[in-house]
Amino acid sequence: MNASNALLAAPLLVAALLPLTAQAETITLTLSQEQDGGTAGRACMYIHQGQAEYRVVKPDEICPATLIVESPTHRA
């Protein structure tokens, strides 16, 4: 493959692989439960579609009411 063919092939390869890259959607989760862990901090739990997201904050902080996460979208 000469240099000009390589220059033409690179954009085609990128265009062919673009549909395979993971796309993400932004989801806002609301606080489901929190637990005081004393000096270890507070455990914050957010539930979405049967899965939990956990965050730990300092003992003197409160859990955020919402949490924004990115979730991969599924393409058929």
Rank of each mutant, 00 (worst) to 15 (best):
G41I: 09
A16I: 02
I68F: 01
R42T: 08
P64Q: 07
L31E: 07
L7S: 03
I27S: 00
C63F: 08
T30D: 12
A10M: 13
P59K: 14
L67K: 06
R75T: 13
A43H: 10
A6M: 15
A43C: 02
G38V: 01
M45H: 01
N2M: 07
P59D: 11
L8I: 04
E70V: 00
A16K: 03
A40S: 13
D36W: 11
A15W: 10
T21I: 06
P72G: 00
Q33Y: 08
V69L: 10
R75F: 15
D60C: 02
T26G: 02
R42N: 14
E53P: 03
Q35Y: 04
P19T: 03
H74W: 11
I27K: 06
E34T: 06
P72E: 00
S32R: 04
V56R: 11
N5G: 02
K58Q: 15
V69H: 04
A43Q: 11
I27Q: 14
L31A: 06
S32E: 08
A3Q: 06
A9N: 07
L29Y: 00
L12S: 04
L18D: 03
Y54P: 03
T21W: 08
G50M: 13
Q33D: 12
P64S: 13
S32K: 09
G41Y: 14
T39M: 14
G41P: 11
I27T: 06
A22T: 12
I62H: 13
I68Y: 08
D60M: 10
G38D: 03
L17M: 08
C44V: 11
G37D: 01
H74C: 05
E53A: 14
T66D: 15
L8P: 02
P59W: 12
H48W: 15
L8G: 05
P64G: 07
S71N: 08
N2Q: 01
G50I: 12
E25G: 00
T26F: 01
Q33F: 11
A15I: 03
I68T: 15
Y46M: 05
A24Q: 14
P72S: 04
H74M: 09
T26W: 11
A43R: 09
T66A: 10
V69M: 12
V56E: 12
G37S: 01
P59G: 02
G41A: 06
A43T: 02
Q49R: 13
Q35P: 00
H48P: 08
V56Q: 15
Q49T: 03
E25H: 05
L17P: 00
T39F: 10
A24M: 00
M1T: 11
A6C: 09
R42H: 15
P59S: 05
E61V: 08
T73F: 05
T28S: 13
Q23D: 03
Y46W: 10
A22V: 07
S4T: 13
R42W: 14
T73G: 03
P19F: 09
A24N: 07
E70W: 04
P72K: 02
L7Y: 07
T73K: 12
L8C: 13
E53V: 13
L17Y: 15
R75I: 01
G50Y: 01
N2I: 01
I62V: 08
Q23S: 09
A24C: 04
S4P: 02
L29K: 06
A9M: 07
A52L: 10
L20M: 05
E25A: 06
E61Q: 14
L17C: 12
D36L: 05
C63S: 09
C63I: 07
I47Y: 14
A22F: 03
A10Y: 13
T66L: 08
Y54L: 03
